[in-house]
Design a protein around this nucleic acid. Structure first.
Lengths: 230, 230
DNA sequence: TCAAAAGTGTTCTCCCTACACCCATGG
DNA sequence: CCATGGGTGTAGGGAGAACACTTTTGA
């Protein structure tokens, strides 16, 4: 593209997409951030994002960006809000369409042309510039809203996992604790999981049963909703 | 503003806001539409909307527009999605930040510079141009999602209303039917309503008790969520 | 006096809740 | 053999679901 060649009758804002990429390490929720390579705010951590190109939709833009940073295709992403305060970006009027993504951390490999990316736990975030802290906070709020009534985990956990891992995920997102026995009973009762009749050692102690999600009932519960009380 | 004076280094899309305004007439959910006054699609019905100005946020833009069409301030509005498919608008690349609003129909008065607006029931919509049918459908889906876990009605019903009116509202949004006795029991049990110890005739038959929302518990249930089973 | 809508209570069942003991494993 | 975490069952209470008769009122 050439510079200085786009002229319009009325002023137009820039439009960008930003993406809050959540991962789970077995204990805590983490977020992927990138270090800015240029001014303004060079070397500060920000959410991965970029300007929208004229021939792509916002979702395509977000997916593209996600692939660059994580090497992943086919990720679960969800648009959750568009940020449009006039002064939110020092570079001028920039509107940002924000997505959150849920990824399996262990499948992430660093993309090609990526300078510096890092995973940060929610309680150990670096300072974020622009309004990215607000964006992240809203992403988390939306994720919490979602997890209360829809199953979550399919996109964050490996294919096979223990009941404890699923419980830890719920606890990490919601910041509450469940009774082990009741959690397991509820999850098994709604038929969300398939027992694989295998075991694995996730802690250095006794082996634990492995489960996988039952795609059919996962989808059904996502439609219909179910509530995990607490 | 002057024409033809805005030049940028890179191409930029236009950004608009569109608003799905829901009202309730006691029986059915209705949507406010406006008739286009200019080409393209002159005289077709569309969702009220307009281009974003450089000095206002999307929410300010949506509220402004809402006031023009309905005369209402302080309306409940909620951003639910941003539509960005490259070909969604024949006029060029237009991105639309969409809101839905819940209003009390009886408080709506026609705004000043409004050509033609109309309320349409969901099952009697005219043909909508652009992708406005998709926008409306998603608004309804989001509203349904919300009503299942949060109280709704404060913004749609008059201050005083009968239990039947609230039930009809729920039934209209969700498209299901509830048992009168169980619905009433559940609603009263969660403490959503205050009994006004007044009666009124909403049908030509026996008078019915009037209630109003209990703001305190309405707010609490909105935070915490509650589920109306069906 | 009849038709239409409002008001109200009980029973049954199921699920959520709280809670404690035994088993497998590695150190 | 001990510490850690995994696996499982039960008893009680509360809430949802199903269900029918009486009252008020206008026509």
């Amino acid at each position: 593209m050439q510079k200085g060649t786009y002229t319009y009758d009325y002023p137009r804002p820039m439009v960008a997409t930003d993406c809050v990429i959540f991962g789970f390490d077995g204990t805590k929720m983490q977020v992927l951030l990138v270090k800015r390579g240029e001014e303004p705010y060079k070397d500060s951590w920000v959410l991965p994002g970029g300007f929208l190109r004229m021939e792509e939709s916002a979702e395509e833009s977000a997916r593209m960006m996600l692939r660059e940073k994580t090497g992943l295709r086919e990720t679960y992403i969800e648009q959750f809000h568009t940020f449009s305060a006039p002064e939110r970006d020092v570079r001028g009027r920039v509107i940002s369409i924000a997505y959150y993504a849920l990824v399996r951390k262990q499948e992430v490999r660093q993309g090609a042309n990526v300078s510096e990316v890092g995973w940060f736990p929610l309680d150990g975030l670096p300072e974020l510039v622009f309004d990215h802290k607000d964006i992240l906070d809203m992403a988390l709020a939306k994720l919490r809203e979602r997890i209360m009534f829809q199953p979550v985990g399919f996109d964050l956990l490996p294919e096979k996992f223990t009941m404890r891992a699923l419980q830890s995920l719920y606890e990490a997102i919601l910041g509450v604790e469940f009774d082990r026995r009741n959690f397991s009973k509820k999850i098994l009762h709604v038929g969300l999981l398939t027992d694989l009749n295998e075991s694995a050692r996730s802690t250095p102690k006794r082996m634990a049963k492995l489960y996988k999600f039952n795609a059919e009932s996962y989808g059904r519960l996502k439609e219909k909703g179910f509530r995990l009380e607490f």
